[in-house]
Design a protein around this nucleic acid. Structure first.
Lengths: 144, 144
DNA sequence: CTTGATGCAAATGGTTTGCATGTTT
DNA sequence: AAACATGCAAACCATTTGCATCAAG
């Protein structure tokens, strides 16, 4: 599979820009790639990483995420009021979340094409939505 | 204007449900109505409120907002990483924000009709989006 | 060797909570 | 009077920061 190949690409890109490739950066990127569909928070990442690298401190994870965000490789998504979650920039998706039971539906990026087209047409705005969360009632709860 | 009339309605509704109508609740709702287009945070609300009611404590503002949220009159919107902002539920709107210059375009609720219709059709999900923020580049910055 | 990243511990800042008191109904 | 909301101060928790040390180029 392409998993680790993609990762190497990212690391290469960093090195190319003159940034240092450290254990922490390697490991954080790897963990993000591995748990992309789990909306990991900073501690969750740290906890998982520490199973193999007990010396990687939580504060380092924060600093690394901040760095990667600045480099455009990672973005944050605040989940309503839950904690902040982190994702690889390549991992674009959106959510519909049920207010009542919390059920989550994952939406493809193109679900918002109508909105983005309209923004471009009416305002010249080039939308690049990364992580939107639409609230509402899922089928089951709406039936109540 | 209808401003205070709407407010009275909300207060009535609360009373009707058996909830108490206190100074704090009155004042918080009033301030939310007054500053609806400014995305106020909890302290900002507290600060403004305290100009006229110095005895309304910040923690009370938090508790009141929590209560109002539970009552469905208010919702929270996390702004990327900025602070949490609070809005009257009646005040539905969405944003397109420029990543580069921060310019904000306000979008009407119906801008998302295509998505909400699709969610209903494909998943039976009744979307009630309240405050979405689409990131991207505004016309000026995209031209760069 | 030089620059920049890390570990650790301590500080920060927004939000929550326990408890005695005041207010609404 | 009974139930509940409030003020206040202290607790909390996620995130940030200062500084001495360590690793990458």
């Amino acid at each position: 599979m392409g998993g680790s190949a993609d990762l190497d690409e990212l690391l290469h890109e960093l090195r190319h820009r003159g940034a240092r490739v450290t254990t922490a950066r390697r490991v954080v990127l790897a963990e993000l790639a591995a748990s992309s569909d789990q909306h990991p928070t900073a501690d969750q990442l740290a906890a998982r990483i520490q199973r193999a690298h007990p010396d990687v401190h939580l504060s380092t994870v924060y600093r690394t995420l901040e760095f990667l965000e600045g480099s455009g490789l990672v973005f944050r998504a605040g989940f309503g009021d839950g904690a902040t979650t982190y994702h690889l920039s390549s991992d674009r998706h959106h959510h519909a979340v049920c207010d009542q039971c919390g059920a989550v539906i994952v939406l493809p990026d193109r679900a918002f094409d109508a909105v983005t087209n309209r923004l471009r047409r009416d305002h010249g705005f080039e939308a690049a939505p990364r992580h939107l969360t639409i609230t509402g009632r899922c089928a089951r709860c709406a039936a109540t």
